[in-house]
Amino acid sequence: MILSIVILIVKIVLLIGILMGGFAYTMLLERRMLGFFQLRLGPNRVGPAGLLQPMADGIKMMYKEDLMPAAADPWVFRLAPVVALTAALSVDAVIPFGAPIHLLGLTISLDIANPSVGLLYAFAFSSLGVYGIVLGGWASQNKYSLLGAVRSSAQLISYELAMGLSVMGVLVMAGTANLEKIVQWQGTHHLWLFIPQIVPFLIFFITAMAETNRTPFDLPEAESELVAGYHTEYSGIRFAMYYIAEYVNMITASGLAVTLFFGGWLGFPFLPPIIWFLLKVGAFLMVFIWVRATLPRFRYDHLMNFGWKVLLPIAFVYFLGTAAFATGVL
């Protein structure tokens, strides 16, 4: 009993450490890659090849003045970034980072919780993340922040539906909503689910990009129209929390995509499973950065039309087809 609690605490601390480290170096990777995409070098002065840049950024963020507008709602203003970060970190609790390991006669699964409906838990927590944005935008009492918040809530509600429908096919094929079992199903059938579910995978990836507010879906913080959207009035450590939340969401979305469609920790045996998982997540993060460097921002009506009139019907039809195949109707 005590041992399992100790293991749990160690796992939680490790996960948060991995996510924070992941955030720091995803950010550095993004800045350097964006530099290369734009024919410049990116930050390369702090430490060898700029590897210590995240530390410099962190120290800068901590010592910056923490401002709050006079008209702001102090409670909600302080609560909002915490909600955003908490929701972002919580989603990863159900993602299995590797095959269960055997240590000193114990079997330790590499996720913090393994509920039977793990996938739904991931969705539940990620749907709570929007509160951070909506509340932050409202509490700032700034019209640009509010516009960002309103855009964000409309965008999230629209794209969450298509996202939910896109993973239904995975549920039907694997016959379970438990993320560990979904990976194991892909192992025993020697079939990574992106092969039969390529269209839902693409929809999942597009909607995940929208849910993380990344370019081309960064309308909530569109800097050319809304200054910085919902986090216009945030500075210092609170701004950093929003920033961390965005990158952790990116890592989470990549982790979910890998788990659901790309066999999670599965891979050739010359590398340990957890390395395979991290490699695949890294590949997805690269795609996120690549897309950001390549595509311009959506116009608002295009965004809504694309979500409701393209993604949602396609996801629905494909899911019906999957269900018909899986149950043997077709």
Binding site: P115, S116, V117, L120, Y121, F123, A124, F125, S127, L128, V130, Y131, V134, L135, G137, W138, L146, A149, V150, S153, A154, L156, I157, E160
Partner: peptide, 25 residues
């Protein structure tokens, strides 16, 4: 477990967001 997840997704994740959407505006 399912009901708990559904509760958060449907009520906290969708319906209350719409409430807030209207109230904040």
């Amino acid at each position: 477990e399912f009901l708990a997840a559904a509760q958060v997704i449907v009520y906290a994740g969708a319906i209350m967001i719409l409430f807030l959407f209207v109230v904040t505006l």
